[in-house]
């Protein structure tokens, strides 16, 4: 039994080690400060700045969009619809189902909607698709905490004359701030790491997008496409991207731990 634990720890270390072992040597200043020269698939020069920036745009955009939609819904479920427990549990069930839908399905669906409306692959299409994909995660992560807020706090706020929305966004948001930050972090991690949902929707380019209507490179696809190139230098770009993505994910994971501990100071218990 201890072996199983050791195995899990070992595998994680092995993953991180192998990615860094192969990727870090390629992770030069040039790599993170330049876009690829001469085409991402054949050009030997340049770096992956296009993918870094593109991924950040995409992940921030999608996370913000998902937060803007998800936070109100999580509050709605627990405050406004408090009386309708069956309905709310139904919504939870639905969200859990959606959470299980593979990202490739979102990607394929998003792409067919884009064709329907004659929209080309673009940052915006990617942001919308990815935000739909992370929305269930975002809502459920917030909901799990909001539903455990003591009802006394709701009553206290309401009895001061707040309406439900004021209670939700001025009181509950503070009470649950650490959970919200954690939810944002998890969602951001999903958004920046997912390849299948951006494959058809965001496209890929060598340049940094200057508007949301342009296609954009992303780190996962930068790995995926460049890894299959026969040229060593291009492959190096892929491994460097993998190292960057891993670093970002590890940072997020550490940050969310630190922040969730820190943001708790005003919370009542």
């Amino acid at each position: 039994m201890q072996i199983s634990i050791a195995l899990i720890v070992l595998v994680l270390s092995l993953i991180v080690f192998s990615i860094f072992y192969r990727g870090l040597p390629s992770l030069t200043w040039e790599m993170v400060s330049q876009t690829p020269k001469g085409g991402y698939y054949f050009g030997k020069e340049g770096g992956v700045l296009n993918a870094i920036i593109g991924s950040l745009y995409l992940a921030f955009g999608a996370t913000i969009l998902a937060l803007v939609m998800g936070l109100p819904v999580a509050m709605l479920m627990n405050i406004h619809l408090r009386k309708f427990k069956k309905l709310v549990n139904g919504v939870r069930f639905l969200l859990d189902l959606l959470w299980g839908v593979p990202s490739i399905v979102y990607g394929a669906f998003g792409f067919s909607v884009m064709i329907f409306f004659g929209v080309k692959t673009s940052l915006l299409a990617g942001i919308i698709t990815v935000s739909l994909f992370i929305l269930p995660i975002m809502i459920r992560a917030i909901d799990e905490v909001v539903r455990n807020v003591p009802v006394g706090l709701l009553e206290a706020s309401m009895s001061l004359g707040s309406n439900k929305s004021q209670t939700a966004f001025m009181v509950y948001v503070r009470q649950c701030s650490s959970a919200i930050v954690t939810a944002i972090m998890i969602s951001f991690g999903r958004a920046i790491g997912d390849a299948a949902s951006v494959l058809f929707t965001t496209g890929y380019t060598d340049s940094i997008p200057t508007s949301v209507m342009q296609p954009s490179a992303t780190l996962p696809l930068s790995i995926f496409f460049q890894l299959s190139s026969p040229i060593q230098e291009v492959q190096n770009r892929a491994y460097a991207s993998a190292a960057i993505l891993t670093i970002i994910i590890l940072i997020i994971s550490v940050l969310s731990r630190v922040i969730s501990n820190k943001y708790n100071k005003n919370k009542i218990s």
């Binding site: 790491g193 997912d194 390849a195 790995i223 993505l245």
Partner: peptide, 9 residues
């Protein structure tokens, strides 16, 4: 939290 692309690599 590790993205699937990393598992692929």
């Amino acid at each position: 939290g590790i993205p699937s692309i990393i598992f692929g690599v």
